[in-house]
Amino acid sequence: MSAAARAHPLLALRNIGKAALADFRILGITTVEQLATQDADTLYVALCRKTGTRHDPCVHDVFAAAIHQARTGEALNWWQFTPARRDRQQRGDFPAV
């Protein structure tokens, strides 16, 4: 286990660095187990509302990748979740903030 992962378990996830960890702190997410029960849409909207800022939709992709890894153990790059999110945006099925 890396020193970062020992410092905070969420940092053991592939796509989680200082910025995403800060976002999770804002959202009250502190463990991988807790993250596994979350929904990327819900987290993205909550982050935007709590910070009063419309965050880049790639933040949603990072959330989706982290949730996927927390649930399955499969570590995929965040950009692998981008096409599905973009499709949803084009259909108007992505959460409005």
Rank of each mutant, 00 (worst) to 15 (best):
M1W: 01
S2K: 02
S2C: 04
S2Q: 03
A3D: 11
A5F: 00
A7L: 05
A7Q: 07
A7K: 04
H8L: 06
H8M: 08
L10N: 01
L11D: 03
L11W: 03
L13M: 07
N15G: 09
I16V: 15
I16M: 04
I16A: 00
G17R: 09
G17I: 09
A20V: 11
L21S: 03
L21P: 01
L21W: 01
D23S: 12
D23W: 03
F24Q: 03
R25A: 09
R25H: 10
R25S: 09
G28W: 05
G28H: 05
G28M: 07
I29D: 01
T30H: 09
V32E: 05
V32A: 06
L35F: 03
L35W: 01
A36M: 07
Q38R: 13
D39N: 14
A40K: 02
A40M: 05
D41G: 08
D41A: 09
D41T: 08
Y44N: 02
V45L: 10
L47S: 01
L47P: 01
L47H: 02
C48Q: 05
C48P: 05
C48S: 08
R49M: 07
K50R: 14
K50L: 12
T51D: 09
G52Q: 07
T53F: 08
T53Q: 13
H55C: 10
D56K: 12
C58F: 14
C58E: 12
V59A: 12
D61K: 01
V62K: 03
A64T: 09
A64R: 04
A64C: 10
A65F: 03
A66D: 04
A66T: 02
H68S: 10
Q69Y: 04
A70V: 02
R71Q: 15
R71D: 10
R71Y: 10
T72N: 10
G73Y: 05
G73E: 07
A75M: 12
N77R: 15
W78I: 00
W78H: 04
W78S: 02
Q80K: 15
Q80H: 15
Q80I: 11
F81G: 02
T82P: 02
T82S: 14
A84S: 13
R86C: 10
R86D: 12
R86H: 11
D87Y: 14
D87T: 15
D87K: 15
D87M: 13
Q89D: 07
Q90W: 11
Q90S: 13
R91M: 12
G92C: 08
G92T: 09
F94P: 02
P95I: 06
V97I: 12
V97K: 11
